[in-house]
Nucleic acid binder design. Sequence first.
DNA 1: TTTGTTGCAAAACGTTTGCAGCCTC
DNA 2: GAGGCTGCAAACGTTTTGCAACAAA
Lengths: 149, 149
Amino acid sequence: MREENSYEAIKDVFTEYLIKKEHRKTPERYAILEHIYHKEGHFDAELLFKEMQHNYRVSLATIYNTIDLLLDCSLIVKHPFAGSTTQYEKTFGNTIHHHLVCSKCGAVKEFSDKKIRSTIQSKHLASFDATHYSLYLYGICKKCRNKNK
Amino acid sequence: MREENSYEAIKDVFTEYLIKKEHRKTPERYAILEHIYHKEGHFDAELLFKEMQHNYRVSLATIYNTIDLLLDCSLIVKHPFAGSTTQYEKTFGNTIHHHLVCSKCGAVKEFSDKKIRSTIQSKHLASFDATHYSLYLYGICKKCRNKNK
DNA sequence: TTTGTTGCAAAACGTTTGCAGCCTC
DNA sequence: GAGGCTGCAAACGTTTTGCAACAAA
């Protein structure tokens, strides 16, 4: 299975990271990683907490702790969207996409553009190993544009 | 003076926005806009508050209020960098640049790439009027790369 | 066995809100 | 003059922290 394989690879990345940093490989950390990588879309700490309560008992504190680790090893990214909670997203296994953010209503839409993608990916910086990127286009969405005419 | 002209233009954008939205043109709002547009780099609400205390008395509440307005009319953007406070940046008057964010140490560096810039800018989306964009490349900076060898 | 990690609850912190007075319009 | 805006301080809600118990190494 493609998905199985890719999740196993992700798990290995995390394991390597934990070993390198001399952090412990706790079941909670893997449960959180697994949960994140088996769902789609953006999430915040509390959403994980609520969703996971059905299957696996973890405290919010542990979720925050694990989110920090996952950010540190780039398995998730932090988004700048407005709103009270910080939004995250997994970095691998997604169709690579960009975000359109409406400056008026805050709506976030995703799109994908091959040319933009390849231009960015082909950029190699001497002093920086880029593993992934986030692109946000800000503007006015269709709905808001029509509203204020 | 080039700078004077461009700041005046920014001010006009803000004024138009305030009129359109039927918000009042208060001295505090213009003072905050002016302060932001006469400084370089990223900032958060408290930094503005501290810096402005020397010249102009504004409350933190008003700063937050004004930041919301400036976000709404796209004169500033919100950044997704890690850290306790939300970071903002003016959208005009900067050399257009992209951000390199080190996943390890959190350092943020700026760079500029003509090809990336023009590819993104030439993208026209039917249902979305894009006014500006933010690009973040995530990876490991030189310092951290050497450290963990 | 050692010590990092967890869960819980309390604390901290950035941001928002309520309200009285002020100042645009 | 009316009502939006400000400053202040209190409230809110997310995230962090301290601590005792637990479990990975």
